[in-house]
Design a protein around this nucleic acid. Structure first.
Length: 262
DNA sequence: ATGGTAGTGTAACTA
């Protein structure tokens, strides 16, 4: 079972890239972030025509998430628990039926949090605490769980080409990294770090559109795949589709993926 | 300190 995450930065502007990448990469499950579309306006047709079921959780103009699946999906849950007043569409969860076992997939678009300090940063840290609580519940199931998406967290200096430039940024501030570690240290495995070992800096998953970041390989690693122990036992590979950043009108993120024997 | 680019949606915001 191949599970992928892709921040498309606007589904309407990225349909060409997504419909070219899906048949090429052949994932079984994809979580999308930043669809920037209400559910009714999501272009499901061209994706369904390629064999994928579409489950969206959108909002107008910003954020928004979706799960695409070629396998049977049950128990789709939208919204991260813990704050009924939170209107931002950033979390979707589903149970996917594999040949050998069921896998819970949690897709997320964690708040950016800039500028920090400020209310947006407070919201980010609150959201991370809610995610930590949900992550603990998912781990307690002792089932295969894959929690993946755009975390908007640079975990370590080696995850940025120029970490010093991120020192004051909400993606790299010490409280952000500590909150991420509190989740990982519950017992999750960082699939990209394990599956795609890299001696020096990188690998990266995001390159800004500005300042020729891609041409200069000035990237960061902020799209992550966390595996429960039962999912990590089944991991057969993981990777980053880096080439996707080089095409015509690409997203500023590239897809990340993990392959499980499931 | 500023501005550089992109998407949504058509002004101003988010990233």
């Amino acid at each position: 079972m191949k599970i992928a995450s892709f921040n498309v930065n606007g589904i309407k502007a990225r349909l060409h890239q997504l419909t070219a990448w899906l048949p090429e990469a052949r994932p079984d499950i994809v979580v999308l972030q930043e669809i920037k579309s209400v559910d009714e306006a999501f272009p499901s047709g061209p994706i369904e025509d390629l064999g994928w079921q579409v489950h969206t959780h959108g909002q107008k103009s910003w954020n928004g998430i979706a799960i695409l699946s070629r396998l049977p999906v049950e128990a789709v849950r939208r919204r991260l628990p813990g704050d009924e007043a939170d209107e931002q569409a950033r979390y979707v969860e589903a149970v996917v039926m594999g040949d050998h076992c069921a896998v819970t997939v949690a897709g997320l678009y964690l708040p950016n949090g800039n500028p920090a300090p400020g209310p947006k940063y407070d919201y980010k840290l609150d959201w991370m605490e809610r995610l930590r609580r949900r992550a603990a519940e998912l781990l307690a199931s002792e089932e295969p769980v894959v929690m993946l998406g755009d975390f908007n967290v640079i975990p370590e200096p080696r995850d940025a080409a120029h970490p010093e430039r991120w020192a004051e940024d909400a993606l790299f501030l010490p409280p952000t990294r500590a909150a991420f570690r509190r989740i990982v240290n519950q017992g999750w495995t960082d699939a990209i770090r394990i599956g795609d070992p890299h001696a020096g800096r990188g690998p990266f998953t995001f390159w800004d559109y500005q300042r020729q970041s891609w041409e200069r390989d000035n990237g960061i690693r902020i799209d992550h795949i966390l595996l429960s122990p039962q999912a990590a036992d089944r991991m057969r590979g993981a990777g980053i589709d880096r080439d996707q950043r080089a095409g015509d009108k690409p997203s500023d993120h590239v897809p990340v993926w993990v392959e499980l024997a499931a």
